[in-house]
Simulated assay, not measured.
Amino acid sequence: MATYVLVHGAGHGGWCYRKVTRLLEAEGHTVYAPTLAGLGDRSHLVSPDVDLDTHITDVANLLFYEDLSDVVLVGHSYGGTVIQGAADRVGDRVGKLVFLDAPEGRSQVEAFPALLKERENGRVVDGVELVFFPSEDLVRFFGVTDPEDIAWMLPRLTPHPWKSLEQPLVLNNRPALEAIPQYRIVSATSLALGIHNEDLMAKARAEGRFWEIDSGHDLMISAPEAVAGLLTEIASA
């Protein structure tokens, strides 16, 4: 049985993996779905100090304090940057990295420049610059169309601290990080938009570590069975 740590993307929380978590646990796997500081059930902790390093520390500390090893570390969207940083710090605890529809770059803004438009819709609350304010349009942007899923998601989404999206990712142990097997699961929608690094996608395809799911960006919500099935396959690879 495998141990999974599922890291969410911007504006979400560990709650977004509920369907996938239940499917994996039903198979006997151990699953952790932490919520990053300032988001979801930890939204009361948002502050001007919350940045990418804060979120990397959230995940690295979980791996250490729970004494986890050979973890399948999964990052959705922005979470893909977070898991890279965590694996760079505590790579000896990570067995595999899975990028779940997660574009890569030195920062999220570099990976996905369209975020700069989202910043125009943001605002400063209690000294914190926030983006991704919840709305039905935002949920549809995430590719979720089922009315029940929309009703479930909307009250749980929280604004995201811009600072964490803008901060560049700094890696100190790149050779060790690159030695960890990496897998890529992408949504058909994001692939069609061309937001993923073509070289990384080609490398993953050549290695047999690439899958496409016919779904929108939040594929852990809209296609949980497909995601859980691939995560099980990856763990046993």
Rank of each mutant, 00 (worst) to 15 (best):
D218K: 14
V46W: 00
L52A: 04
R184A: 09
P224Q: 14
L97P: 02
A37F: 13
A86P: 01
D214T: 11
L115E: 03
V82I: 08
P155F: 06
T35Y: 04
A111T: 00
A2G: 06
V74A: 03
G28C: 07
L130C: 05
V59Y: 01
S69K: 11
G127Q: 15
A10L: 02
L68D: 01
G105R: 02
G143E: 08
E27C: 13
A223N: 08
D137W: 07
L219W: 02
T3S: 08
P175G: 09
E66V: 11
Q84T: 10
H29S: 13
S164H: 06
G79V: 02
V82A: 03
H55L: 07
L177Y: 08
V71D: 01
E233S: 15
F133H: 05
Q167P: 14
L62C: 12
V124P: 09
L6Y: 06
V109I: 13
S164R: 02
R119P: 04
W15E: 01
G105Q: 01
V94F: 00
A33S: 10
G216K: 03
P147R: 10
L165D: 01
D146C: 12
P134C: 10
P113E: 07
W162F: 01
G79Y: 05
D218N: 11
V71C: 00
L157T: 06
R89W: 06
R156I: 08
A223T: 06
G143W: 01
G75Q: 02
L115S: 02
D126S: 04
R209G: 13
L138Y: 04
G28F: 14
M220A: 10
P181H: 06
P103G: 03
F141E: 08
P48A: 14
T232Y: 08
A204L: 12
M220C: 09
V124L: 06
P155A: 12
K117P: 01
P181W: 07
R156L: 15
E225S: 14
I234W: 02
V71F: 05
T158D: 05
C16F: 05
L115N: 04
Q84V: 11
F112D: 03
D49F: 15
I56C: 05
A2I: 15
T57G: 13
G13I: 06
V5A: 02
L191F: 13
A114L: 05
F112Y: 12
I150F: 00
R106Y: 15
L63K: 04
P48E: 09
E25S: 15
E178D: 15
A60F: 06
E178T: 10
F132I: 03
V31A: 01
H12C: 12
I213Q: 06
V5I: 07
G127W: 11
I180M: 08
G11A: 09
F132D: 02
V7L: 01
V50H: 02
A2K: 09
S43Q: 12
F112E: 06
N172H: 12
Y65W: 11
G38I: 13
S187I: 09
N197L: 07
K19D: 09
T232H: 07
V131E: 00
L68H: 05
L62V: 07
L24N: 10
D70M: 13
A226I: 14
H44E: 14
F64I: 14
R119M: 11
A204C: 11
H196M: 04
L36K: 00
R184Q: 09
W211T: 05
V131I: 13
L45T: 04
L231W: 05
T35C: 10
P155C: 08
D214R: 12
I185S: 01
A33R: 01
F112R: 03
S43D: 11
T145A: 12
